[in-house]
Amino acid sequence: MKWLPNTVYTLLLIIGFILVGYFYVDYTLQSPTRTQEIVVEIPPQSSVKTVGSILEKQKIIRDDRFFRYYAKWKGKTNIMAGSYAIGKDESIDGILTILTSGKENTTKVTIIEGSTAIDIAETLNKQIGTNKEEFLKEVNRTNGKFAFEKQIPVKPEIKYKLEGYLFPSTYQFHKEDSPQKIVDTMLSRFEKEMKELNVNTATTSEPNGKPLHELVTFASVLEREGQKKDELTKIAGVLENRMEKRMKLQVDASVVYAIQIDTGKKLTQVMKADYKYSSPYNTYQIQGFPPAPIGSPGANAYRAALSPEKHDYLYYVLKEDGTGYHDFTVTYQDHLKADQKAKARR
């Protein structure tokens, strides 16, 4: 029976090692003390090992060396890409459940085509609580990360530097996202959309001869002026024809924008007196396009700006028949007749 004490000692030693190992692994997978939730970004096609490293770097777990083994033991290795909010008291099992659920802790924010910087600030404030003043301050930043930001003219009449470049789309934002992160996300989308349209944002001039800033401005006018996407190229042709003849563009949308950025008031209808409003954006008062975009154009407006329709039209007027389409005319006399018909339909 002399072997009994040695056997018991060996068993106790083994049990001790197992317990120490268990508590050590448990310790490494626990979170350091946190006072607030942490947003973690999981890139597409991330391995479980990579996810563990991300969690360690963001101090969500203490050590990542056992994370992948624990995830495999729990049968939760199908971690999905996305942006997730991890609560300050969340356990390792809770974290794995969040990461494998695919349910991101974000709010869907839709920025509609033609939105101005002021409109976007108000939308963000309403939906995720973004401070409007801080957002608009970021829109006027001077140290942007994108090369095309350096091409944007610096003029006193340009109130919001990144006006027009904040691409309209549906985004997933966190309530904690900073104005800088939001602006960077929207500019990244702008860069991606330009690439798909074969527009090189790193150069100062595009294939059609327009500098990037002029292209964005042209597209913004089309976006705000045209209600029907299949009419945008025709409207673009009218504006180019008027430019060639040194005629003022006389775009109502420019008047609406001019008054909005100066007074905060957004017109629902332009009155005759509004055409006399003094502003470098009012195309009834200035020659050519405004000095900067008057809203955020979508892809269709860019396509129209890049390829205006060739025709002889110099005028257009909304039909006022509920369709959103315009009547296009070559002469001023025919334009007046079309305008009278439209007024009769109101």
Results as ranks from 00 to 15, higher is better:
2 K>I: 14
3 W>P: 07
23 F>W: 12
27 Y>H: 13
29 L>G: 04
33 T>S: 14
49 K>D: 11
55 L>R: 04
72 K>C: 00
78 N>F: 06
87 G>Q: 13
88 K>W: 03
93 D>S: 12
101 S>C: 07
106 T>G: 10
107 T>A: 11
107 T>K: 13
120 I>H: 08
130 T>D: 01
138 E>L: 04
140 N>M: 01
140 N>E: 01
152 I>E: 01
169 S>W: 02
170 T>H: 06
186 M>Q: 12
186 M>A: 11
187 L>A: 11
187 L>R: 09
189 R>V: 13
190 F>L: 05
192 K>L: 09
193 E>M: 13
193 E>W: 01
195 K>G: 09
202 A>R: 13
202 A>N: 14
203 T>H: 03
206 E>I: 12
209 G>P: 05
215 L>G: 06
222 L>Q: 02
225 E>A: 04
232 L>D: 02
233 T>Q: 12
235 I>G: 01
235 I>D: 04
241 N>H: 04
242 R>E: 07
250 Q>Y: 07
251 V>T: 10
252 D>N: 04
257 Y>C: 00
268 T>R: 12
268 T>S: 10
269 Q>S: 13
272 K>R: 14
274 D>Y: 06
280 P>V: 04
283 T>Q: 01
288 G>P: 02
295 G>T: 00
304 A>P: 11
319 K>N: 03
319 K>C: 03
335 H>F: 15
342 A>K: 11
